[in-house]
């Protein structure tokens, strides 16, 4: 990505999901190293916008660049550089935490050291690492999902309700991880209904209403 380019640059972007227009002409710029809070009512299109940014939902009209790549023609290059944590964790219930993190490390070509470091950052000790994901609480699953995200070394983190299901301690841990990721150069977009908490984390807040983005601060 060129230094002067925005990390996300959407102009009148229209995304189609299951045959229906899910984003109707979104214009959005996110600069490097920002932590942007994306807020809006249910059904406003926050998750769709994040999935479109990750290259999971095709942008069919308008301009859509992520990390300097045109989403309408080169979604693969975008996908290699972004990390998305959606409502689901992307974990395998029958595997242990260590096996899940190990699998995702192998998939993205991360080293054993990076894998161990990710688990350490998410406070996953030896005892917890050996437990099957299906036996874990929602918060523990989320921590495991974050460990899998950390090994991605993504330049852009797209987090959809990252605090969902977590207790206060778990939420603090997530905030710490997000701040560390931003400090190490990642750009982060967080969609959340936990406005007060997320606003403390964010450097900018934007609102998505009926497919239109508005800067709030």
């Amino acid at each position: 990505m060129m230094a002067t380019e925005s990390v996300i640059n959407f102009v009148d972007a229209v995304a189609v999901y299951n045959g229906y227009p899910a984003l109707a002409g979104v214009t959005l710029r996110v600069e490097s190293n920002e932590i942007v809070l994306l807020q809006g009512p249910n059904g406003a299109g926050k998750s769709t916008l994040l999935r479109a940014c990750a290259g999971l939902i095709p942008v069919v009209r308008g301009t859509a660049h992520v990390l300097g790549y045109d989403l309408t023609i080169d979604r693969e290059s975008v996908r290699e550089r972004v990390g998305l944590l959606g409502h689901q964790n992307g974990l395998f219930g029958e595997l242990t935490i260590a096996e899940n993190v190990s699998f995702w490390s192998t998939i993205v070509g991360a080293s054993t050291q990076e894998r161990n470091s990710a688990m350490e950052r998410m406070a996953i000790d030896g005892r917890l690492a050996g437990r099957r994901v299906s036996e874990l609480s929602a918060g523990q699953k989320r921590r495991c999902a974050f460990a899998c995200l950390v090994v991605r070394r993504a330049e852009l983190w797209l987090l959809d309700e990252p605090h969902a299901g977590l207790d206060a301690k778990g939420r603090d841990e997530i905030d710490r991880i997000v701040q560390e990721a931003a400090a190490s150069g990642a750009t982060i977009v967080v969609a959340s209904h936990e406005i007060e908490r997320a606003q403390q984390l964010a450097t900018r807040t934007i609102s998505l209403v009926a497919g239109q983005v508005r800067d709030l601060q």
Binding site: G83, G86, F92, C148
Partner: peptide
């Protein structure tokens, strides 16, 4: 089913695999 149950297939796609 093991890929779609918790969105692992989406994660694989986003990982650029």
């Amino acid at each position: 089913a093991v890929e779609t149950y918790d969105g692992a297939l989406d994660s694989l796609r986003v990982a650029g695999v």
